[in-house]
Design a protein around this nucleic acid. Structure first.
Lengths: 201, 201
DNA sequence: ACCTGAACACCGTTCAAGT
DNA sequence: ACCTGAACACCGTTCAAGT
């Protein structure tokens, strides 16, 4: 664990940090291994001692991204006041705000899986952690009542779909709103429609 | 209009067709201008007489994609039987099935805007045409009743968000279902939750 | 064990030159 | 008007060689 080179202490960590900097500066297309190596001040071949190829570095960035997303939503819920019973809706707002604040990381997180059809265990665990927040929120909303697990899965997938849909359409400029406050308000309006369906069902 | 070269009749069209072939064969990362030129059997510099750069070719493919999406949904509605009043829901099924059948084109359509912040008029018109289907469907659902246009926009954006969310999560493998029939059924289940919200609101 | 420099086969883009 | 070939500065990846 935490391999230490004589040059960088922990090159793997440095490379992931450098990758995020390059990503946010030049977008996904500009995220080349060589650019990351330059950012980390090592030779262009050095990253290959920590990542088999570009995709594996991208996967590591995605893994960190899902962990950050989860933490961001939890922090958002802790620092925001909302109506009792509106926690799921406010979690969606946190979800979308993360995407708006880190659009390139968010896009990378959902583009990482498609290249390689064998995502790493670590990436699966990290994305499952974020999904677990939603699933747990749904299950909690049924407190006391008898629950059909398949129904909980459908509802969790519904929530994830709406949050992901609003997040991606927003960062791609298709829903108009750009500043965080307008995005949050629009997300509440859109998830509000869904919310009525959840209560009706 | 329809420029004709002595070598290819209509190279611009040929390049767009070649681009779709390369895209479906090698993914977005493999969609290089040089590979498209090879596929179209012209020199690697020839595309520059029809597209200023790679992004403009990608934009042209996206434009064609939105037109195809619109046509696909219309055809799906014409060839599928559904409960009266469930047209919007079935349109969402058509929307998601298009993404599942053409995942690389669909991803390209929504990745095209972000590179260049000045999308072409043609691309805007094409994507507006697809969005118009949703907006029209919502407005039609209110037939006779007094309508608040802002409310229609919110509902249309809600429908687009859920369809886009299901589509992207499905093609990225996050929702389990892969074969068209399972995808259609899951889409009906998920949009059904939203549907109850629409009727309640 | 970790890092480097040279090498190879690719890119996007430009541009003088051909028909 | 449309197309080509050579050129430039980039890539990802490999590998022998250095410390």
């Amino acid at each position: 664990m935490t391999p230490r080179s004589y040059h960088h202490g922990d090159l793997r960590r440095s490379l992931i940090r450098a990758a995020v900097i390059v990503l946010e500066r030049h977008g996904l297309e500009g995220l080349s291994l060589r650019a990351v190596a330059r950012q980390a001040k090592v030779s262009h071949a050095a990253p290959y001692h920590h990542f088999a190829n570009r995709d594996q570095l991208v996967e590591a960035v995605a893994e960190a991204g899902f962990a950050d997303l989860r933490a961001f939503i939890i922090r958002h819920l802790e620092t925001t006041t909302f109506e009792p019973g509106a926690m799921l809706q406010e979690a969606a707002v946190g979800y979308v705000l993360f995407a708006v604040e880190h659009p390139d990381v968010y896009r990378l997180m959902f583009g990482a899986a498609l290249k390689d059809h064998n995502p790493s265990e670590a990436l699966l665990a990290s994305s499952a952690g974020a999904y677990g927040l939603i699933h747990g929120g749904i299950a909690a909303a049924f407190q006391g009542q008898p629950v059909d697990e398949a129904r909980v899965v459908t509802l969790a997938r519904t929530c994830w779909s709406i949050a992901h849909g609003v997040a991606t359409l927003t960062i791609d400029g298709h829903l108009g709103a750009t500043d965080p406050e307008a995005v949050a308000e629009q997300t509440r309006a859109i998830t509000g429609v869904l919310w009525q369906g959840l209560r009706a069902g």
